[in-house]
Amino acid sequence: MKHDETAGMAHPLEDLVRMDRIPHIWCPGCGIGSVFTSCLTAVKQTNIPYNQFTMVSGIGCSGRGAGYINIDSFHTTHGRAIPFASGIKMARPDLNVIVFSGDGDLFAIGGNHFIHAARRNMDLTVICVNNLTYGMTGGQVAATTPFKARSSTTALGNPDTPFNLPLLAYASGATYVARWTMLHARDLADCIQEAILRRGFSFIEVLSPCPINYGRRNREKTLETLKKYHDNTIVKNGASPTELEVDFNKGVILGKFIDIEKPTCDEVYRRMYRPPEETTENRKSR
């Protein structure tokens, strides 16, 4: 390396990243790398040993996350990140399972899995990187593309209403719902840390720019999107999930909206179906 000052020094997150795979595939100006950095920072902040984490991703740009983190991780089939994560959680309830995926993967093809994992209160931390489009496949209209926004398949503007993801998560039974943008990196890292440390289904939506496939068609450069995240957002913790549409003209509400306690799926299942005298250890010793 040419830069003398960095000789012998390393980025503090290098122990958590598979450095042999860096540079990653994310485009210049893409926000997924920032969300990923916040997520790794949160993992580091918890002070839990790294072998007690696992990360699961689906398909898409954000789905690459599992391939870049240097802990046990799983890059699954399209939309099926949550079923794989649920399986891991039921088999190994001691692990902290993080699902890091995109809006298309979690809410379009994987929407059904999401609502049922939320309903059953699986003990997962779901981080949804919402870039408002299908970035990897060429900017097609997604379930989260705002009304009238242009995409490669809706050249005159999107005629449909997008999902309000925090409302969907809350209505399905999620016990922790938050939304940030990638620019609110510190709040986001603290929020992910809190979500990892608590029990129950935690959902964090993160707005992130896609300059190549969304920004270009909507006349928006990356730093303009970031300026919008800075100027047109309102932090309002505890806001009602019904008022959380992504509409930058009205102002997008960020914050932690829901935090309730409920018994988790693996806990109730074990209590009802695996009473203490029936565990495998007891059976072996008998």
Binding site: H11, P12, P23, G33, S34, T37, T41, A185, R186
Partner: peptide, 13 residues
């Protein structure tokens, strides 16, 4: 550390 947290490329700290 804000640059460190915001950089998508692990290129600044």
């Amino acid at each position: 550390h804000y640059c460190e947290l915001l950089c998508p490329e692990f290129a600044i700290y």
